[in-house]
């Protein structure tokens, strides 16, 4: 029986899709059969980040409306065995995501997968509510700034009152904080909140800190999730986060300003 993980934030553009792609890829790399679902109906871009946009035939909404079956809509990843993408439709509106429809698709996927990763849209409207409704665990992506932290706090309240687990008085949704686009230099200058500031406000366990990194943009332009870039800081930070998610106890990296080496300084890093 699969675990359902929602990647959510409230605020837009903080790195949910980047994170969904990286975490799903990381789980599959470690041998878990994983599917990542794009809940951002109308704005799909998970397929771009996963590099499968040209292979989209059917989508999540087609499956919900029973216009295709799940097998037809799932896209198998080119690089990693065990990894599948269920893309969002670019044309339909969010009302297509009904509780019953989403529940039925997730129930079917649950039977044959280990992890189902749900990439939530921004906001607290229907799409975001549906992405978190069935979740067992939640990765809250937050940028180190007040408005993002405030929105994450709001989403945490919703997770604890409007998810199936909350409604049925089951064990609460397990929450993790993923602090993304962290720039230690700007933290030192007092322009951004520090890790401990954010931890203090949200008071949930820290899964990882992803540094602000050029590797992320490069990866999404190429359609290769950044976790494949094992040389990059962001790739390593995501790999650590996946290991922590699976229970490893690893120290957090990339929290301090990286001293540039002489060569990097001469040739630009």
């Amino acid at each position: 029986m699969a675990k359902i993980i929602v990647v959510t934030s409230g605020k837009g553009g903080v790195g949910k899709t980047t994170t969904s792609a990286a975490i799903a890829t990381g789980l599959a790399m470690r041998g878990y059969k994983t599917v990542v679902i794009d809940f951002d109906v109308g704005l799909r871009n998970l397929d771009l980040v996963m590099g499968c946009e040209r292979r989209v035939v059917y989508d999540f909404v087609n499956v919900i409306n029973e216009e295709s079956n799940i097998k037809q809509a799932l896209i198998k990843d080119k690089r990693i065995a065990n990894l599948f993408v269920l893309p969002a439709s670019q044309t339909r509106d969010k009302e297509a995501l009904t509780k019953e429809g989403v529940g039925r698709v997730l129930e079917e996927l649950r039977k044959s997968y280990d992890y189902i990763v749900c990439d939530s849209p921004a906001g607290i409207e229907k799409g975001a509510l549906m992405a978190l409704y069935y979740a067992d665990e939640a990765i809250i992506v937050t940028n180190p700034e007040i408005s993002s932290v405030r929105d994450s706090d709001r989403i945490l309240g919703i997770l604890q009152s409007k998810s199936v687990r909350a409604e049925q008085d089951l064990e609460p949704v397990k929450e993790y904080l993923l602090l993304s686009r962290y720039d230690p230099e700007r933290v030192n200058r007092g322009e951004m909140l520090s890790v401990s500031d954010v931890e203090d406000i949200l008071a949930i366990p820290l899964l990882g800190v992803i540094p602000e990194s050029k590797a992320v943009l490069k990866a999404s332009n190429q359609g290769i999730p950044v976790i494949h870039d094992a040389e990059s800081d962001a790739g390593q930070a995501y790999a650590d986060s996946v290991d922590r998610f699976l229970g490893k106890d690893l120290p957090h990296r990339f929290l301090e300003v990286q001293k540039k080496g002489l060569l990097k300084r001469m040739f630009g890093g």
Partner: peptide, 8 residues
């Protein structure tokens, strides 16, 4: 005994 979050 659990956090009271923004909006609650």
């Amino acid at each position: 005994n659990k956090p009271v979050r923004s909006g609650q």
